[in-house]
Design a binder for these strands. Structure first.
Lengths: 238, 238, 238, 238
DNA sequence: CATGAATGAGGTTTCATTCAT
DNA sequence: CATGAATGAAACCTCATTCAT
């Protein structure tokens, strides 16, 4: 008997997209003639997007090695050969994919509005809220688990992730911590040496979500607040 | 073209064992007859052990799907068919394997000597030291990453891990925290609701080790101490 | 050591077909577009046919279990994987195959021209002649032996054969016998209860052909005539 | 999906015999010492018998290629290696087996008591009764089907069967027919040229039993009587 | 550009046969 | 003699990749 669960989910997986909504109606004024090439490029980009979307789902669901290009193609609503018009092979598709997906994630997270008169704690908490809402409980969280899972086998992915996410993220956290220390909100000065501690519960939440949410739910935000209490001192009024 | 990295490491992988005989000095007086079954069983157990050992290495290095039974066999120094004398198929080998490996890990960690007159902080720190030394910086850490990676595809594994490690571990942590609160060492009473926070940096260390140790080393113990300072208050004398 | 005989014949087996193209003169006026699907479908049907043909030969020569898909592929002039584009697996290939092959056999036999003023004996004899010429001494006879051989292991095949061949055939024979009785050509009224008796020598001939033709030839038609003499009475003029 | 029926029956197949009843209590007067070697030979013969018995069952149930020595060993209650003490390999086991099983079958059938004042018809009918009772409705019938199935792949088996069964059987039938002709019981003189006709319905019965008994039962004896009526003329009193 | 039929290397699993115990 | 663990050659089947249409 083979993995029943895997088998079961394999069947239910491909939900072909079949050319999703030719979308926004090209508002440019160019004559209809010139629209053709435009449409071409547009369509190509759309297809590429559909492939990436589909591939993400499949890779998250099965991991790199167990994912079949056939399923990606079906789910994306394209032919198998079409994938090779956009990507060199399965491996570089995976790597490009991660890059493509990470960037908006980083943008999304690093663009938390600074909030003028806020305390550092509020800023960190706002950030955590965003992270938990937008990452931990969505497919983006699985993406992080995917990177943890496949990273060692894809140095390029690990490198990229380290460069784009880890260093930036830790730098941002460190800045926050130092600001907190400067403002007197944070007592523990050594925390600046290990900004990882600040985000540790967030990672825990991501992993818990993927693996154990069906065994026991985890209120990630409540957990994070307790964590912040440790760092900033208990809140006077809760 | 397949995974270049995988290909490269694949070659260096199989280090045949061929640790035959061991022929123990058989000084006992038992009749020669009784030696046969003993040796048989012993050899069988040895082989099974070698297979498990080899499989663990391969699965950690490549993940479930990308691991070849051929390589496991080579590394264990047995023929491919021999694997099937000990395990039903690749999948159940993987699951049994995780079980087999988790148990001693749990035992190792849960048997930290209670240390009579120690403070809770000392106890937690001792535990963390053990964990970091025995898990985070060894192959056992990769095992945890493997479970995180494959868990969603192997519900049996996730279930087992949740039951044997997570619930037990969290219960233990919660007990510690409550003791700390009772003794006045820990101020934050809500921490008992989220024992995950206590171990979060340890998990961070495990993952960092697997993915980013070559990008930047992480002094897990120092990090953990800072974390403990947050929980127990900064140490008077460091 | 494996079956020597099988080994010997195994080598001579694969006679690749490579009957590509056929390139039909395409004199039609249809737009070039419509040719594509037509050619595609045609080619696919051709390939499927070649596989079935090859598989039939191999299965007849070695039986189900001992037949290798590799040999079928070689003989059909296709790659191993191509077989799986047409059939789910070896087993369903076998079953489909039997179905595919039985139908024309039934059609061939059931389409014996009624012959207006003929006696029942003449009709039966004509039928027997057809059967012996078109089945007993051709590969179709081996097909029947194959069904006898594998039937118990493939209930679906036995069911199909019973439904499509046995019941129809016996019904036809019974109708003949009853006509013979009505016309006074056949005396033995109980024969209608066992139409099997009518065809028994034909089956004997099929089996003899497969197994003992090299030990001693069997004049199936002469045998059948003697059998008919038993049923209809000896012929006045021979 | 693989052959469900085959899978199902595979599990239920091996019913270990485990040294069936050391049987008859060696009535010889020799001292207990000499019994040992005697027992040895006896035991060896017993084991060989058990293996043959088990092998027959398995080969009949699955055919040569699909039968596993493992199952034969289990069913016979011996170790796999033991089979190789009695037979060179799977193939020669199969051939020896057929020989071993055919001989008693021939003896059983050729030893029908001559019945002093009986008519030829009575003799033939008695023979048919025996055949149908002892062969067609027992495992021996399946043995014949097995020979039909595997014969082309085992020339040695086909040769042996032709020599030991077919020629003898046909010779016997021919003698009967000639006696019937001489006594005026049989009109059709040409029947002596094709004694196969005499036994054809018996073979039909054997095959029907194996393949279609579950679709529709066949009263082999009644059928045979109708067949005899064709040959000897309808019976005056039924 | 897009397709999807075709390929064939490679992976898992089975099983006849051997041989140390 | 008997055992059954071990072997490793095949067998079935999958799936990344190519390429004619």
């Amino acid at each position: 008997m083979t993995n029943e669960a895997a088998k079961a989910s394999r069947k239910s997986a491909p939900k072909p997209a079949h050319r999703r909504a030719r979308a926004r109606a090209s508002t440019d004024l160019a004559p209809s003639r010139s629209k053709l090439p435009s449409n071409r490029a547009e369509r190509a980009a759309e297809r590429r997007g559909a492939i990436i979307e589909a591939a993400m789902d499949e890779f998250i669901a099965r991991g790199f090695a167990a994912t079949r290009l056939d399923d990606i193609a079906k789910r994306a609503g394209v032919a198998k050969g079409t994938i090779y018009l956009h990507f060199k092979d399965k491996e570089s598709m995976f790597e490009e994919l991660i890059r493509t997906a990470i960037v908006p994630l980083v943008i999304r997270l690093s663009s938390t509005p600074p909030a003028p008169g806020a305390s550092v704690r509020d800023m960190v908490e706002a950030f955590a809220r965003t992270f938990i809402a937008e990452v931990a409980s969505t497919r983006r969280g699985d993406l992080i688990r995917l990177i943890v899972a496949e990273g060692p086998r894809f140095p390029a992915v690990a490198d990229f992730y380290y460069r784009e996410v880890i260093t930036r993220g830790l730098a941002g956290m460190r800045a926050m911590i130092e600001l907190g220390i400067a403002r007197g909100e944070i007592k523990q000065k050594k925390l600046a040496q290990f900004p990882q501690i600040l985000v540790a519960p967030a990672l825990i939440a991501v992993i818990w979500q993927s693996l154990f949410s069906k065994h026991a739910p985890l209120d990630a935000i409540a957990m994070f607040r307790v964590h912040l209490d440790l760092i900033f001192g208990e809140r006077r009024t809760a």
